[in-house]
């Protein structure tokens, strides 16, 4: 049942991409996304393709893992493509019944499909090669300047990493409580919406009680181990930029540069 849900699907491997500083991957992914939304022309598309597949290759993550992520958004992609295809005004190519396909529509549909696919593939390279912990570490360090203006960056990062640790535990617990209530004749499936919501009470109350108890226990355990917020804390795995991180930044910036140059000077055929 619920245990089939997997979160933070990290794919362990020993690759350059895995070793990169999570901040590089975060900023790199951001720049990559920007590039996807401003590319124009076949040359830029080519650059994006080469860049994406080179990174995938370097990450040593099997391509089928990447494609898995695509399956879930297939429907969304189809809908977007169909809307673009039929609803873009312009030069008519084919028409039947009340629908007509325009050249612009066709172009938009293809561009949208490519953008979405590349977007998913690119971001999944990041999630597949970075553990959730590295990600939160990266976020904490990257957003550190914000703590000067009073944003509790350390606390937010700590909350995120604790949530990541406890989500699987709470999912398992939900499963257990559901079964226990079903053994007492509870019904979680039938009935209309109101009945269904009402039937969730025997599941939700124990789940909240348990979550609060866990939170309480955990807070005490953290205190017992001298936790007192981010001040004066050292790091077991501090983030330090290596040479390869600099190179990675350079590569991504260069790639974005190419895409922008193409957008301004070689926008053909788009």
């Amino acid at each position: 049942m619920l245990r089939d849900i997997t979160l933070g699907q990290y794919y362990p491997a020993d690759s350059v991409i895995h070793k990169l500083d999570p901040r590089v991957k975060l900023f790199g992914t951001m720049l990559y996304i920007i590039s996807l939304f401003c590319f124009r022309g076949i040359v830029a598309l080519l650059a994006a393709t080469v860049f994406l597949f080179a990174v995938i290759r370097l990450s040593k993550v099997p391509f089928r893992f990447m494609v898995k992520g695509l399956r879930t958004i297939m429907i969304l992609m189809l809908i977007t493509a169909v809307f673009n295809l039929f609803l873009t005004p312009g030069e008519e190519l084919v028409s039947f019944w009340k629908l007509k396909i325009t050249a612009e529509g066709l172009k938009n549909a293809i561009v949208m499909a490519v953008r979405l696919t590349y977007l998913i593939l690119g971001t999944s390279v990041m999630t597949l090669t970075t553990t959730p912990n590295q990600l939160t570490d990266g976020l904490e360090k990257a957003l550190a300047p914000l703590s000067k203006i009073g944003v509790p960056v350390h606390a937010i990062a700590m909350m995120m990493s604790i949530a990541l640790r406890f989500i699987p535990i709470l999912i398992e617990e939900t499963d257990k409580i559901m079964k226990a209530q079903m053994a007492r004749g509870a019904d979680f499936e039938t009935g209309n919406l109101i009945a269904k919501v009402k039937n969730m009470i025997p599941l939700l109350v124990p789940l909240f009680v348990s979550a609060f108890r866990r939170a309480d226990d955990l807070a005490m355990a953290m205190e017992a181990r001298c936790y007192h917020g981010g001040s004066g804390r050292t790091k077991m795995k501090p983030l330090r930029y290596q040479k390869r991180d600099g190179l990675a930044y350079l590569t991504v910036t260069a790639y974005l540069g190419v895409v922008l140059v193409c957008r301004w000077f070689l926008p053909w055929p788009m």
Binding site: S161, I162, A221
Partner: peptide, 11 residues
């Protein structure tokens, strides 16, 4: 503490 799950903080 008693509950092994509720005292491990990191993943």
């Amino acid at each position: 503490f008693q509950n092994p799950d509720n005292q491990i903080i990191a993943s």
